[in-house]
Design a protein around this nucleic acid. Structure first.
Lengths: 142, 142
DNA sequence: TCTTGAACCTCTACCCGCTGTAGGTCCTAT
DNA sequence: ATAGGACCTACAGCGGGTAGAGGTTCAAGA
């Protein structure tokens, strides 16, 4: 049996976050000590590790919930889990593309501004006038 | 004089968002019609366009506030604005790097899972066991 | 056995950057 | 005069937590 602090240390998750996961039903309610403190099984530790690792890979909590369900009921999980992972991969690729366009724009802005012309700031100019941009960055970055 | 709806259409910003910007002090309080509706000058339109464009480039609102201040008082803005833009560029580059590591991990996971072994799902396995990862992705993605 | 003090508890509010809803008012074209 | 779209305020909620107040429990040392 582990305390919440042990889970926290072992998975690098803040104590509040673990309680938050319980609150939103991602972690099961653990048994309690006579004094009302949470006591966890090894299985809970594993579950939390799974959650944290998935978060580190950028999965949203909803997707993690699905993955956990699949993991719990291993009737036919592979195809479904695979689909979730592929979806996540597409998301990540999309974000990379968007960020690359942003980087290009920012780089151009900063590079152009390199001179010591104080009166006319290229950075502010570009921000003021969208038409100076190469790309159409319709969707907000990230 | 423009209505809030005009600003909304012209800058692609939702009406509520414009009011929100006013609330947090990013947009100035406009004059009102006799019936209490907001009426904007061209300068406000420009300011909003500046804000939106900066957001599209991923600047957080705090940074935009600074940029607007610099833009308003053009005594010595260039170096400061440049610094803000460079900071943003670094942030974007950092995020790209992190996402690339994520992508690699996800790709490996998904590719490995390609077989039709239903019982043993590679995706779930990797999520369960962090030690199967190549990289240490300490900080949460995005 | 008692005492400390670290770790635990609940509850509430806050972060960013909006978005949505409810319930009401204004403005303008017909 | 009226219809109905655009506007108003106020508040709640999203994701994914984080911080703090104010109180209790637990375990190790004296």
């Amino acid at each position: 049996m582990h305390t919440i602090g042990t889970l926290s240390k072992r998975t690098g998750t803040k104590v509040q976050t673990i309680r938050y996961y319980e609150q939103i039903g991602l972690m099961r309610e653990p048994v309690r000590s006579s004094g009302g403190q949470r006591r966890y099984h090894d299985a809970d530790l594993d579950r939390l590790a799974f959650i944290r690792h998935s978060r580190q890979l950028g999965f949203p909590l909803d997707a993690i919930r699905e993955l956990l369900d699949l993991s719990d009921a291993p009737s036919r999980p592979c195809a479904d889990a695979d689909a979730i992972a592929r979806r996540q991969l597409r998301q990540v690729e999309l974000r990379i593309e968007r960020l690359r366009a942003l980087r290009k724009e920012l780089k151009r802005m900063v590079d152009d501004c390199d001179g010591d012309s104080v009166a006319e700031c290229r950075v502010l100019e570009v921000l003021r006038d969208h038409s100076e941009c190469l790309t159409q960055h319709e969707e907000i970055g990230a």
